[in-house]
Lab assay of single mutants.
Amino acid sequence: MIFPGATVRVTNVDDTYYRFEGLVQRVSDGKAAVLFENGNWDKLVTFRLSELEAVK
């Protein structure tokens, strides 16, 4: 189960963010908004829950 605050990895091989890890900001309607941070940039991207896996 994916909840806000969880760290997730993108599993969709066709996505630009494949294998990126980010922090879930919100979850609704089968989608999750994931925040990616890297140095001087932040990006908030929405994914279907089926495209994400929780990082242990």
Rank of each mutant, 00 (worst) to 15 (best):
F47I: 05
Y17V: 01
V45K: 08
T16P: 15
L49N: 03
E53P: 00
Y17E: 02
E53F: 06
T7I: 13
A6Q: 13
G22C: 02
T7G: 03
R48T: 10
F20Q: 13
Q25M: 15
V55S: 05
E37M: 14
T11C: 08
Y18V: 02
T46S: 09
D29R: 08
S28G: 10
R48G: 10
V55F: 06
A6S: 10
R26W: 15
N38S: 11
E51L: 04
V8L: 01
Q25V: 15
G39P: 08
R48F: 14
V13M: 09
A32L: 03
K56F: 13
K56D: 14
A33D: 15
V34R: 00
V24I: 04
R19V: 03
E51K: 02
K31M: 14
D14A: 11
L52Q: 00
S50I: 08
L52T: 00
V45I: 10
K56Y: 13
D42Q: 15
L49G: 02
G22W: 04
N40W: 08
L44D: 03
F36D: 00
D42T: 15
D42S: 15
A6T: 12
T11K: 08
G5N: 04
I2L: 06
W41H: 10
M1H: 12
Y17F: 09
A54Y: 14
V24P: 00
R9C: 06
D14T: 11
P4T: 07
D14F: 13
G39Y: 08
S28K: 10
A54M: 13
L35T: 05
V24N: 00
W41F: 11
W41I: 13
L23S: 08
V27I: 11
F3S: 09
V13D: 05
V27L: 07
E37W: 12
D29L: 07
Y18M: 02
V10S: 02
F3P: 04
F47Y: 14
S28L: 09
F47L: 05
T11G: 04
F47G: 00
F36R: 00
E21Q: 09
V34F: 01
V55D: 03
T11F: 04
A32E: 01
T46L: 11
K43M: 13
L52V: 05
L23I: 15
G5T: 03
N12G: 05
V13Q: 11
Y17S: 03
Y17T: 02
